[in-house]
């Protein structure tokens, strides 16, 4: 008898818990599934460090493969790509937009795979996470180097598809998105989309070449 009552109570608690999770009334458990902005940068830093430490063993292709899923999870490439060609984005048809976005994403990942190509005792340090301002959270992370001054990265992140994603990085007050945009819009003006795609593909191929 006692067993039957306990069993029913347990069933009831399970049912209520399931209902609360489904309806979002159990926010702690529901939120625990999604990493916050700092956790996102922590995962990125861990992956970059791994790529640096195993740079020779992995080679360029291995680093690209290692970094690709993490970078795609961490960065809002759709937003960054569209913003990086400014007003020209609206002039492209669907096919051109898709081609540009693929080329842009490849180039972005290749840049990381090409540049994080060795390890000399570096480590990352997370400094702080700001309160959201207009939906943007800034996570500050430092790259501590043995011989050189630390480099401070300001990751500007916003929630995209239930995940905090980077929309810009600022280093020494220089917005990397603005820097890219200045170049891409210049190329779009002088050479058009085909010229930009060719240049990005050449750059991407260049990262795959061993350094001289």
């Amino acid at each position: 008898m006692l067993h039957a009552v306990r069993g029913r109570i347990e069933q009831f608690i399970l049912l209520v818990t399931f209902f609360m999770i489904c309806t979002g009334m159990f926010p702690i458990m529901a939120e625990a599934v999604q990493p916050g902005p700092t956790e996102g940068i922590q995962a990125l830093n861990a992956c970059l460090l791994d790529a640096m430490k195993r740079a020779d063993e992995l080679g360029y292709a291995g680093r690209y493969k290692l970094l690709e899923p993490v970078l795609k999870d961490t960065f809002d490439f759709s937003f960054m790509g569209a913003k990086s060609i400014g007003r020209f984005w609206e002039t492209l048809n669907d096919e051109q937009q898709a081609l540009f976005m693929k080329t842009y994403t490849d180039w972005s990942i290749a840049t990381y795979a090409g540049r994080f190509d060795g390890y000399s005792g570096e480590r990352f340090e997370l400094v702080s996470e700001s309160a959201p301002v207009q939906g943007i959270v800034t996570v500050i992370s430092k790259l501590i180097q043995l011989k050189e001054e630390p480099i401070t990265f300001y990751y500007l992140m916003r929630m995209v598809e239930d995940r905090w994603r980077v929309v810009d990085i600022q280093i020494s007050g220089v917005s990397q998105l603005a820097l890219t945009r200045a170049q891409f819009t210049e190329v779009m003006k002088s050479k058009g989309l085909d010229g930009l795609i060719t240049m990005l593909k050449n750059k991407t191929a260049g990262f795959a070449q061993p350094k001289k």
């Binding site: 800034t138 500007l156 600022q170």
Partner: peptide, 11 residues
């Protein structure tokens, strides 16, 4: 303003 005292850029 961040807890560390550093000033971060924002939107």
């Amino acid at each position: 303003e961040n807890p560390s005292g550093e000033t971060a850029p924002s939107t």
